[in-house]
Nucleic acid binder design. Structure first.
Lengths: 200, 200
DNA sequence: AAAAAAGTAGACTGGATAGTCTAAGCGCCA
DNA sequence: TGGCGCTTAGACTATCCAGTCTACTTTTTT
């Protein structure tokens, strides 16, 4: 009889999903038994698919990083594009997922330095690079002041998140996703980086 | 014989300092034995002074929060004041101390929600309030555009830290303290929040 | 239908840890 | 001197956990 949902990797997939949720909810310290139970699978089965807890953790992190990557779709209007990006960015990173991943990586970076660097490069670094490329084009087109695109991208992402992320990490609820905030931030950003009016 | 350094609370103090360093270096999971050893004290002595590990942790956090509070000394010039504040802020919060505390609170907030809120109020919240009060005065004086001071303070602190804090959490070194960055950030900030030139 | 592959339950090892308890040690003061 | 309070080393309890092993059952393949 063919299983209803499973592909050939059905069990492995269930394990990864269970581990993902478990690590998200309880951090790295969640026990192997709890993960196995969550996947409705015996502990030994877990060890048939993954050599160790650390390996499983690594897989989960490498997979999770993709779930917080934000795509930037450049439209006609600079402001519209940035507001859309900002909304997506805030939604991803201030949602339960984004907060949990950030918390876990912050906590475990000392114990998994290589994994943490991978995460950093594939997550925040990648997002910043994409944004910086877009901003660089806007600068060339004269729609933004000339400046270091990486620096400018950092400023925008910082303004979009920083304090609210802290709220999310600590407070564990509240309406972080006030969507009017995105527009406010983008307007500040555009004032700060408007093209210089009186080029000497 | 009078001990060289101790007041009547000498042992307690030594324990607090040892615990502070230990939690900073290894997080909450550091064992009681390691803390006691670090303070060169028997485990039982530790339990003579603190009811439990959690109580000790709480004491340490409540004490540590003070060490990352930044004072804002308002001088004549807005820009000078903000650059000085920015330097102090970055130095405190991007230093090993600031990063460790942030990491630990991010990690342990779910297990110590009340403590985390205390930390949030006495740390970031307080800094933001002070900064916002200063900025509000600058607005009244016409040196900054009228806006919500809390929001404006958030933007400045976010620009000063966000991405570099992430670097500090992950990368565990690199020269985060490029001091030219502070001035660059403050200049962006001042452009974003300059008084409106042409009031309609 | 038989063999191979994958899954299962649970016992077990080895190690770590928070916190308790005891019996003794040491310095200080009356 | 003798007593008091803080300190000490370490044994001890109770819990938890990663990872292994074994013997058994189910599923899939041939």
């Amino acid at each position: 009889m063919v299983p209803v949902v499973d592909t050939s990797h059905g069990t492995r997939q269930r394990l990864l999903e269970a581990a993902c949720e478990a690590f998200r909810e309880e951090g790295y310290q969640v026990s192997i038994d709890r993960i196995a139970a969550r996947a409705q699978v015996a502990r030994q089965t877990l060890y048939n698919h993954f050599q160790s807890k650390d390996e499983l953790f690594g897989e989960v992190v490498r997979h999770s990083v993709l779930s917080v990557l934000v795509t930037l779709e450049s439209g006609e209007d600079l402001r519209t594009t940035l507001v859309a990006f900002g909304e997506a960015y805030r939604t991803r990173l201030l949602g339960p997922n984004g907060i949990s991943i950030f918390r876990t990586m912050a906590a475990e970076a000392p114990r998994f330095p290589e994994l943490a660097k991978q995460f950093f490069r594939q997550g925040p670094q990648t997002t910043r690079r994409r944004l910086a490329e877009y901003l660089a084009r806007a600068m060339e087109a004269g729609r933004l002041r000339q400046d270091d695109p990486d620096f400018v991208a950092e400023m925008l992402t910082a303004m979009l998140l920083d304090f609210d992320r802290l709220r999310g990490l600590i407070d564990l609820q509240t309406d972080l996703l006030d969507s009017s905030k995105t527009a406010r931030v983008v307007d500040c950003f555009l004032r700060a980086f408007a093209p210089e009016k009186d080029a000497p």
